[in-house]
Design a protein around this nucleic acid. Structure first.
Lengths: 377, 377
DNA sequence: CCGGATAAGTAAGTGCGGTGAACTAACTAA
DNA sequence: TTAGTTAGTTCACCGCACTTACTTATCCGG
């Protein structure tokens, strides 16, 4: 996957293809294999990659020298022939800094290893910081996180609210008052590290795709928080959209006779599905909570049905407060989708909640780095 | 773009990358350049591709020897230095057979050159042929078309109704009674040529993407005929979906209180938008035609709005009977989409009808071959 | 009309990366 | 011990694009 262009690095093929690129590609192939299926012998890797044993040995040797991969000894079972030497990804040879800027009052981040395990967390309060001040705040958060690990940092991944283009420039993020803010470039220049920035829903879908229990078909992650947004992984890679605004479905109208929205339209999805709104709905006196949630689920299903049919998705994952989403709301959404689409579209579809919790954004931000730097995801 | 795996050919990178692959890639790069921007000198190609003049000369020489490219003499203008020798794609060095199996009573096809120009047409009547008989009929049509050209045939492209997987197997096509029919493999074996098969809406979107006036953002083509289907080109490549059923939006419910559909649901998009149905609607006595069409357009817009927001599309193209689609229907759909999505999603969006007419499917089928065999699109 | 500048295209040699063939190493089976 | 199997390495080779250095062909300024 090549979700984003790393800042300060040569860009990916698209154009001419050098031998050097081939070598990087083959390296990624081996890393990917180790990443997905765990340790293997050089011979195993050769069989899986269709490269020769010679080439694999060479590449593995290089990666062992860098510390990215380590020899782990021979496996238990004893078969004929020389026993293989297992090699595996050294998950803590490098660490990744993942940042989540999507929360309302704070920016949080984590030190993540190459296996996607969160090793340390840190956060800073926003306190109304905007524009340039907010950028400085992100820089401080990143710097403090870098200080929390003694390993070399592979790169910085950022899940930002708002619309982000493929170069890591935040086109528009009202909460932080960012417009055309070259966040990736700024951080890369200040920290001298590869930096990748994407919308928070997009990093979330990457996290779910790589570390969730999802398959290889199309995946959609719907994030329900202060607002509502989505991210898509289609054909193994992140969907950006024409202007980087793919997944911005929070302001699709679901009920033209509904409530007035801050965006000046009426009956946007956010006016019924945003987390604060959901909480108010179920807490309202004299309201049947489950029925109200089911009603929202039905409306969500009405929005999702055309998307499901159009994209022939494999999985939809809801990410957000489980006590609100998991239950009548999810069931009703699921049911509505099936009522409103053909079996060919819906039988292959699973709708569920995320098991990764709120870490999904930072871990997904780390995936951005893994994919960009190691070609792994 | 690599929309489909050619039958009987080595598959594309994904795995190991040989030098041979690099060379093919660079060849495609040059062909693509000539295809899009017309004739150029070797030096121009070197500048555009970032390859050296030496390498370009070598590749061009190879392609000239194959007849794919021809020298066209020096251009008019006179500047300093040795005048360049223009080279250009020899559009008629090879021909492509494009087939359209989506019509109700007949299968049609065409001989298409490398520039996408239709040179000859031919069709056969289906007369109720089904299953194996229908396959034989496709084979006959292809054979007869091959006999209509004296040039080497680059490959066969097929736009088939129903759901088609990436290997060119028709998973399900009720009209022809095909289920899991390996159409590409059958034709490839019988004709000893590369064969590519895709859903007709998918070939249509490829045709529109390559030969229409579309830009590089996400493109959706909505085909309105006996049924309703769509195809998507996202990030420059065709969207297949989990089970190859992407774009099957004909049976998304738009009006739960609507008319009963053949698929057993009520109020499917097809029950209001299919061409025969539209014709009946406007011809009904005592009905305000334009208003009725606008009403359908509004319903279409309601289905498209979530898709537009989710994918951040750049263009939506309606393909079908222009007298019905172009006018109140399109205007209402366009308006509804804008009413129901945010400006960030809709400002970059154009909604229009196709200028390619009914050839869009066969020409798109030819694009399938161009992309698969020459890496051009 | 003749050198000098500039650009297009060609020829020869270099380096990189992957390959196949042959080899060593380490083990099991009989 | 001998045969057979598997892992991993060494080495010579090949294909590809690169650099360097050239020829060819034109314009331009004196």
């Amino acid at each position: 996957m090549t979700p984003h262009t790393p800042v300060g690095r040569p860009l990916r093929p698209q154009g001419k293809l050098l031998q050097e690129d081939a070598r990087r590609h083959h390296r990624s192939l081996l890393l990917q294999q180790l990443f997905r299926d765990g340790p293997a012998s050089r011979a195993d890797l050769a069989r899986a990659s269709a490269l020769t044993r010679v080439t694999v040995s060479d590449l593995v040797g290089e990666m062992v020298a860098e510390g990215l991969v380590t020899e782990l000894g021979a496996p238990e079972g004893s078969r004929v022939g020389k026993p293989p030497m297992l090699v595996g990804l050294a998950a803590d040879s490098h660490h990744i800094i993942g940042l989540d800027l999507s929360e309302t009052d704070s920016m949080s981040g984590a030190v993540v290893n190459l296996a996607g395990t969160v090793l340390a967390r840190h956060e800073v309060h926003v306190d109304g910081a905007e524009g340039e001040q907010a950028v400085e705040l992100v820089l401080r958060l990143a710097t403090e996180l870098i200080a929390m690990t003694d390993r070399p940092v592979l790169g910085i991944g950022v899940g930002s609210p708002g619309v982000v283009d493929t170069a890591g420039t935040v086109i528009d993020a009202p909460n932080l008052a960012w417009t055309d803010t070259p966040l990736a470039a700024r951080l890369a220049a200040a920290l001298d590290l590869p930096v990748f920035v994407a919308n928070d829903a997009n990093t979330a879908v990457l996290g779910e795709h790589t570390f969730g229990e999802s398959g290889d078909g199309g995946l959609m992650v719907l994030r329900v928080g202060t607002g509502v947004g989505a991210g898509f992984v289609l054909g193994g890679s992140l969907l950006h959209g024409h202007l980087g605004a793919a997944g911005e479905i929070g302001h699709v109208v679901v009920d033209p006779d509904g409530e007035r929205c801050a965006c000046s339209r009426t009956g946007c999805l956010e006016t019924v599905l945003a987390a604060p709104r959901l909480r108010r709905t179920v807490a309202a006196p004299g309201v049947d909570g489950p029925a109200a949630l089911a009603d929202v689920g039905r409306q969500l299903g009405e929005v999702l049905a055309p998307i499901v049919a159009a994209l022939n998705l494999h999985e939809i994952v809801l990410s957000g407060p489980a006590e609100l989403l998991d239950g009548p709301l999810l069931d009703a959404a699921n049911r509505t989708i099936r009522e409103r689409t053909m079996p060919i579209s819906s039988t292959g579809l699973a709708v569920r909640t995320s098991k990764l919790g709120e870490d999904v954004v930072v871990v997904g931000a780390a995936v951005l780095v893994l994919a960009g730097e190691l070609g792994v995801s």
